[in-house]
Amino acid sequence: MTAAAAAREAVIAPPPSLTQRRIRPGELLFRLALQFCLLVAFAFLVALIVFAVYKGWNRLDARLWQNMPTGRASRVEAAGVQSAITGTLWVIALTALISLPTGIASAIYLEEYADNTRWYNRLLELNIQNLAGVPSIVFGILGLGLIARVIGLGFTVITAAVVLSLLVLPTVIIASREALRAVPQSIRQASYALGATRWQTTSRQVLPAAIPGMATGAILALSRALGEAAPLILLGAVTFIRFNPDSLLSTYTTLPIQIYNLIKEPQAEFQELAAAAIVLLLVILLLMNSVAIVIRNKFQKRW
């Protein structure tokens, strides 16, 4: 052994044995903490589903979607939520039609066209992020004052759809921008280097590559709109509706609002109906999420 090696030996403790496996408490503890957190989140979700299915089991039949809501205490056993289902579908479809094109176009501008060294573009970005944090009830108040009253669209399907669109627009924009940003810069450069214009590059290369990410974001945003009740309370959805909407200017109700109405009633039958409606709402949410997964897998590209 050289003198230098001997000097090193003197200051460094000999390493532990290679063949003796040790238990590292820190590693174990951290892993357990992570699993515990996941368990908490998952347990609540399972509890919610189990409880709703259990409570609403007796009413999970065709009456739920074939019958209209009934008045207080009268013919409880014949009550359903059909007008709320159709109302929800109308409102969500319209919200998608309004918010997705607007949100995706905004995201394309901000990501592909805007010069983000300019102060006004940065101001726009900042405000969109702030809007995402505005409570939904505030959007309801805005809709009541501006769209229902000043513009005069009243308590209608279109008013609800416009307000929900405004509500989810920031989410759609932010998710779409993330999807656009995930498209490698090299693809854009390749396209420009062949003499393609900005719009050709965006529409033929960047957008198709960003569709999976955008679809995921869009479905998440619409799922939020689907479950939203607060702004609609202000926009006339709490009224007692015994018919399906048939135009943009129909009055309407939605599932979350109907659930809220039913739970307020004292009869146990109405409570059961509410639980059944919750299960139905969860099923619709699940279906929408599966659509997002299908789109994502269909368009997924590997770089």
Binding site: P184, S186, I187, Q189, A190, S191, Y192, A193, L194, G195, A196, T197, Q200, R204, Q205, A209, K301, R302, W303
Partner: peptide, 28 residues
């Protein structure tokens, strides 16, 4: 850029078919 083309450091084919990669430039 149509007259002065460019090949990049990292191969960057479009996530399309071989045929469409070649046809893209003439098309656009």
């Amino acid at each position: 850029r149509r007259r002065i083309g460019m090949v990049f450091q990292k191969p960057n084919p479009f996530p399309k078919s071989i045929y469409d990669n070649i046809a893209y430039g003439p098309r656009v």
